[in-house]
Amino acid sequence: MTRRSPDQIIARYVWSGESLLQWQALHFEGSVLRQITPVGPGVTADVHLLSPGLTDLQVNGGGGVMFNSDPTPRGLSAMRDAHRRLGTADILPTVITDHPEITEAAAEAALSCWSESGILGLHIEGPHIARARKGTHEEGLIRPLDLRTVTLVERLRQAGMPVMITLAPELAEASLLRRLVASGAVVSAGHSGATELEARQAFAQGVRCVTHLFNAMDQMSSRAPGLLGAAILSPVACGLICDGIHVSWDMLRIALAARPKGALSFAVSDAMATVGGPESFTLYDQQIAVHDGRLINREGALAGAHIDQLGNLRNLVHHVGLSLPAALAMVTSTPRAILGLPARRISPGLKSTDLLYLDKGLMPLQPVHSAH
Rank of each mutant, 00 (worst) to 15 (best):
W15I: 02
F28I: 12
F28T: 11
Q35N: 14
V39P: 07
G40Q: 11
V43P: 06
L49K: 10
G53P: 09
Q58E: 05
G63Y: 07
M66K: 09
G87R: 02
I102N: 13
E116S: 14
I124C: 06
H128V: 01
A132G: 15
H137C: 00
E139H: 12
L141V: 07
D146R: 08
T149M: 08
L152M: 15
L152K: 04
R155A: 15
A159G: 15
G160A: 13
M164Y: 03
T166F: 02
A168R: 00
E170C: 05
A174W: 07
A174P: 15
S175L: 02
S175E: 13
R179A: 04
V181P: 01
V181Q: 04
S192I: 04
G193H: 09
L197R: 13
A199H: 01
H212V: 04
P225F: 04
G226K: 05
S234I: 10
V236E: 01
V236R: 03
I241R: 05
D243I: 05
G244N: 14
M251P: 07
A258P: 07
G262A: 11
G276W: 03
G277E: 08
Y284L: 08
V290C: 13
D292R: 14
L295S: 08
N297M: 06
R298P: 02
L302N: 09
L310C: 06
H318G: 09
L322G: 12
A327P: 04
P342C: 08
R344H: 14
S347G: 06
S347M: 13
G349N: 05
L356P: 04
G361I: 00
P364H: 09
L365K: 10
V368N: 12
